[in-house]
Write a protein that binds this DNA or RNA. Structure first.
Lengths: 215, 215
DNA sequence: CCCGCAACTGTACGACGTACACCCGGTGCG
DNA sequence: CGCACCGGGTGTACGTCGTACAGTTGCGGG
């Protein structure tokens, strides 16, 4: 579509790939498609990225870099932890299809390392020994990511998204009411909660409070 | 490899697909490969499954069906919730590469609905209103799944798994120690914690305690 | 015996990642 | 001023994937 402005740069390609993912899902991010979108041969991509996986790496790094990590303060550890998790969430939410890319790759680049260091420090301040801190930190990061990424791995085309949601909700509500009363009552929330503000708020609280309860 | 015994059945195919995923990762589960593994033409698969996605659906359903959901007891809600999450974990752990399939598909079949109903009921007993119950239930299921699935989305060949782990750990330990002291100290745990018993135990506790703290 | 249908085959198409060979045009150096 | 270099891009080709469409088997019941 978009013709080549003058020269391709790695960063514009990454941005283009993110837009593609946001608009049509991660499966639309393709070497060929990315090339076509920039009016260029597929093989041209290999000048900027070693292979497709390193394109995905770059997207993940872009995502992690966009986390606006709050500076350390004198507030208690749980407030700060909550703020960090919130910052990660805020960075990922605009890009649900790409969010999952960040999972395996947090520790690949400097911003992710800084992030991990901060989380580990806060967990240690919360009273967790190093081993448990590491485990909990890993899990916290994974959880926040999956908060955003869930249900968007392999999303359908954006327009029948709403249609499918409606359909699934109807399907749930057609269940035998004596067997699954709560599922039926909760159908709208179960189907629709992804992407809602209070879904994120509630579960970030859950995580932070869970850490506190570990002692 | 394995020749056709006499006739193919949907269930044996699903089992074969799970074995394939366990042995070589989810990306090895291919219509063509599954056919070849059973000494048959790729197109033969389309008699048993509408398309690849419905094969994945079937694998997810198989996984969820294998959860040995404990019967309701008179124990307090948190004990029971913990038991249920543990049961899900136990069912998923033998199949890390396929675990992620269960995310979007829990509510597709009867066993998953039963599971959701039980969780919702326990959360309500914990004092959460229906809306928060639905949100928390969704998140709890996603989290348990991502406990297992994390780091195994797109795993490499099984033999250099260990090699990569070693490499990554070395890479982490080579960082500037004044900047990332905790990351470096935790390097073995950060890289290696996936699949460890205490990683799962700790984080299930975190989740259940987190729910309790929501009031 | 043979007919029907469940189960499987054969061939083909378009999309994907990517190896390998080639080439163009601007920049720096003699 | 000319030319060689090389960063960035082209063209072609291969093997793999999912799967559409049409044909073929063989077994069980009339």
């Amino acid at each position: 579509m978009a013709k080549r402005s003058v020269r391709l740069s790695r960063d514009t390609l990454i941005g283009c790939a993110m837009d593609l993912a946001d608009a049509e899902g991660l499966e639309a991010v393709t070497i060929r498609r990315l090339a076509q979108e920039n009016g260029v041969t597929p093989m041209a991509m290999y000048w900027h990225f070693n292979d497709k996986d390193s394109l995905l790496d770059a997207m993940a790094e872009h995502l992690i870099t966009s986390v606006d990590l709050p500076e350390p303060t004198e507030e208690p550890w749980d407030v700060q932890l909550r703020a960090i998790l919130g910052a990660i969430l805020a960075a990922l939410r605009p890009h649900p299809p790409a969010a999952g890319l960040a999972m395996r790759r947090v520790l690949n680049a400097e911003p992710g390392l800084k992030l991990a260091e901060r989380v580990l420090e806060l967990l240690s301040r919360a009273g967790l020994d190093p081993h448990r801190s590491a485990n909990a930190a890993t899990f916290l990061l994974c959880s926040v990511i999956s908060l955003v990424a869930a249900e968007f791995t392999n999303r359908p085309e954006p327009e029948d998204q709403e249609h499918l949601v409606r359909q699934k909700k109807a399907l749930l509500e057609a269940l035998s009411p004596e067997r699954y009363p709560r599922v039926i009552a909760a159908a709208p929330d179960l189907v629709n909660c992804f992407g809602q503000d209070d879904y994120f708020e509630l579960n970030l609280d859950l995580l932070v409070q869970g850490v506190r309860a570990l002692r």
